[in-house]
Amino acid sequence: MQVVLQIPKITVIRPHGCLNATNALELERDLTTALAQDEISILVVNLAKVESLDSAGLMALVSTLKLSMKLGKTLRLCSVSPALRIIFELTQLDDVFEIWESEPELAIAQLA
């Protein structure tokens, strides 16, 4: 029997408010905990409700991306507002992160 379609397990994390030095460690801990679960192969961070992002918040995402690569898993970002997208573009991290427009787009791509 041949497996025709295999959809990996996806976890979505939806932070909100400001991702900054005050809560960056908490965000990184939450993302790391999610990645460490064996049944998860893709971690999606939905940034739709994130109002601002400073260097500490950005570093939490970068650290999580590095961990995901080390574990052989995937980290994707989605629903990045234009204000946040500028930060990713200025830091040239838009070429490093997989950034999707929305969760539904990501889900459809997984089924294709």
Rank of each mutant, 00 (worst) to 15 (best):
residue 93 L to R: 09
residue 99 I to Q: 08
residue 76 R to Y: 05
residue 109 A to F: 13
residue 36 A to W: 02
residue 7 I to R: 12
residue 14 R to P: 13
residue 20 N to A: 12
residue 43 L to E: 07
residue 3 V to D: 10
residue 110 Q to N: 15
residue 106 L to K: 03
residue 57 G to L: 03
residue 52 S to R: 14
residue 74 T to H: 07
residue 3 V to R: 12
residue 37 Q to C: 07
residue 83 A to F: 08
residue 90 L to I: 03
residue 81 S to Y: 01
residue 13 I to E: 13
residue 109 A to N: 14
residue 95 D to C: 11
residue 99 I to P: 01
residue 85 R to V: 04
residue 25 L to I: 08
residue 108 I to F: 10
residue 83 A to D: 12
residue 96 V to Q: 14
residue 101 E to Y: 04
residue 95 D to M: 07
residue 66 K to L: 08
residue 9 K to Y: 15
residue 21 A to S: 15
residue 81 S to A: 01
residue 6 Q to L: 05
residue 50 V to A: 05
residue 40 I to V: 15
residue 80 V to R: 04
residue 42 I to Q: 10
residue 108 I to Q: 13
residue 77 L to D: 02
residue 27 L to V: 04
residue 59 M to N: 12
residue 64 T to Q: 00
residue 26 E to R: 05
residue 104 P to Q: 14
residue 103 E to R: 07
residue 47 L to Y: 00
residue 71 L to M: 07
residue 19 L to S: 09
residue 49 K to Y: 01
residue 8 P to E: 08
residue 48 A to R: 09
residue 97 F to W: 02
residue 24 A to G: 09
residue 64 T to K: 04
residue 48 A to N: 13
residue 26 E to H: 11
residue 25 L to H: 10
residue 59 M to P: 03
residue 84 L to V: 02
residue 31 L to S: 09
residue 28 E to C: 08
residue 102 S to G: 13
residue 34 A to R: 09
residue 86 I to N: 04
residue 7 I to H: 15
residue 61 L to Q: 03
residue 96 V to A: 08
residue 79 S to H: 04
residue 47 L to M: 10
residue 82 P to F: 02
residue 77 L to H: 03
residue 108 I to M: 14
residue 9 K to F: 01
residue 101 E to T: 12
residue 54 D to S: 11
residue 24 A to Q: 10
residue 92 Q to L: 00
residue 74 T to K: 03
residue 53 L to D: 06
residue 98 E to T: 01
residue 23 N to Y: 04
residue 102 S to T: 14
residue 109 A to G: 13
residue 90 L to G: 00
residue 18 C to M: 08
residue 42 I to D: 09
residue 47 L to H: 01
residue 59 M to W: 06
residue 16 H to N: 15
residue 36 A to D: 06
residue 84 L to M: 06
residue 22 T to R: 14
residue 9 K to N: 15
residue 107 A to C: 13
residue 98 E to G: 11
residue 11 T to I: 13
residue 87 I to D: 02
residue 31 L to K: 09
residue 68 S to N: 03
residue 14 R to I: 15
residue 67 L to S: 03
residue 5 L to W: 13
residue 7 I to E: 15
residue 46 N to L: 01
residue 10 I to N: 15
residue 104 P to H: 10
residue 31 L to M: 08
residue 38 D to G: 04
residue 15 P to E: 05
residue 1 M to T: 11
residue 27 L to H: 07
residue 4 V to M: 14
residue 112 A to G: 14
residue 94 D to M: 03
residue 9 K to G: 12
residue 4 V to N: 15
residue 102 S to W: 12
residue 49 K to E: 15
residue 77 L to P: 08
residue 60 A to Y: 08
residue 50 V to F: 03
residue 103 E to T: 14
residue 72 G to M: 03
residue 8 P to H: 06
residue 21 A to I: 14
residue 61 L to T: 07
residue 18 C to I: 10
residue 34 A to T: 14
residue 31 L to Q: 08
residue 83 A to C: 06
residue 83 A to E: 14
residue 89 E to N: 11
residue 39 E to G: 02
residue 99 I to F: 04
residue 101 E to V: 02
residue 18 C to K: 12
residue 87 I to L: 02
